[in-house]
Amino acid sequence: MVRTRIDVGRVRAAREMIDPVFLDTPLYRCEALEPELGCAVSVKLETANPVRSFKGRGTEVVASLLAGPGPGPGPGAGAGSRAAVCASAGNLGQALAWSGRRRGLDVTVVASRSAPAAKLDRIRALGARLELVDGDFEAARERAADVARHDGVRLVEDSLDIETCEGAATIGLELADAAPAFDAVLIALGGGALATGVGQVLKALAPGVEVICVQPLGAPAMTLSWRRGRVVTTGPTDTIADGVAGRRPIPVVLDDLLQVADDAVLVREDSIIAGMRMLLDHAGLVVEPSAALGVAAVLEDRDRFAGRRVATIVCGGNVDMDAYRRWVGIAPGIASGHGA
């Protein structure tokens, strides 16, 4: 039996802490995509919620425990405090702000100045204090840790904190219920919470399903680490998929990934953009680049997936619309909504 930090019993308990608005998201076969991809494609839509990404599942668990009686959960300072800080490329910050506001928590989000403006504006709108730093996501992580130490508040570290993994893993429970309908699940790989959480549940409840993680060539740290069986730190990232653009894998998260991932693949930027365009044209979905990684993986290796039944997790829909229009080649004023 596969053993990681993630426990399926705790995942089931986590599900009870999560606002139902994040649960039981649509999972449906999208036949319109199939002529282009050459396989049966099911979409797990994690954008139809108040923060437009799967991250709310994890922050709901964190915030529920932090707001409850007794000491705050997890490592770090601030046990018992009703305040939290996180580093974010945008989606985690929105999710923690939403979950914290609902429970009266004081939330600070640290982000890079280069993060998409739409994500930063939404964090502010949700009532969190936003601190911007020069540099990339790793610089934001360092600053968030400094804030936690100085202010004595809970540091929420995506993927390292087990609550974020087990919150994301509730997606796996929903996929496992439908598992006879597909042979493989394609999962965006960044820090690892989504991949390890969903992967652990599938290995426990639907072991015949292949777990395939997908990362951009321009941000390959976790995939290279998985392939070599040890942490590989990379230089600056170069990808439009900002939600998965980390450079320093967390060792314990890599340990979990090594147990649950059957494969980890890297895809080109042009394939990510093609995937975004396909999801718009054939599924009516405006998604951020990270959410198109699964489609990109099929586009780059059609022979591998030919005739198979594949599920892909559409993990986020927070995207700067001006950039989106440039990427997918549509004129201003078309697809003017901010996505799912």
Rank of each mutant, 00 (worst) to 15 (best):
D7S: 14
V8R: 01
V21F: 08
V21C: 09
P26N: 10
Y28G: 10
E36R: 15
G38F: 04
A40V: 14
V43G: 01
V43M: 10
K44N: 07
S53V: 11
S53T: 13
K55T: 11
G56N: 07
A63F: 07
L65M: 14
L65E: 13
P71V: 09
P73K: 11
G76R: 07
A83W: 10
C86Y: 08
A87R: 01
S88Y: 04
G93D: 06
L96Y: 05
S99P: 08
S99M: 11
R101H: 11
V110L: 09
P116V: 13
K119D: 03
R122M: 10
G127R: 11
A139C: 10
R141N: 14
A145Q: 10
V147W: 05
V147E: 10
H150K: 14
V153P: 02
D158V: 12
S159H: 04
L160F: 15
D161P: 06
I162K: 02
E163K: 04
E163H: 12
G167P: 02
T170Y: 00
I171A: 01
G172P: 00
V185K: 00
I187K: 01
A188F: 08
L189P: 00
G190T: 08
G192Q: 01
L194E: 03
V198Y: 00
Q200H: 12
A204Y: 00
G208E: 07
E210L: 08
I212S: 00
I212C: 04
V214E: 02
Q215A: 11
T223M: 04
V232M: 06
P236S: 14
A241H: 06
G243S: 12
A245V: 05
R247T: 13
D256F: 02
A261G: 04
D263V: 06
R268L: 13
I273M: 13
M276T: 09
M278H: 09
L280S: 14
D281R: 15
V295Q: 03
V295C: 09
V298M: 11
L299D: 01
E300T: 09
F305D: 01
A306W: 05
G307F: 08
V310T: 05
T312N: 06
N318Y: 11
A323P: 04
A335Y: 11
H338P: 05
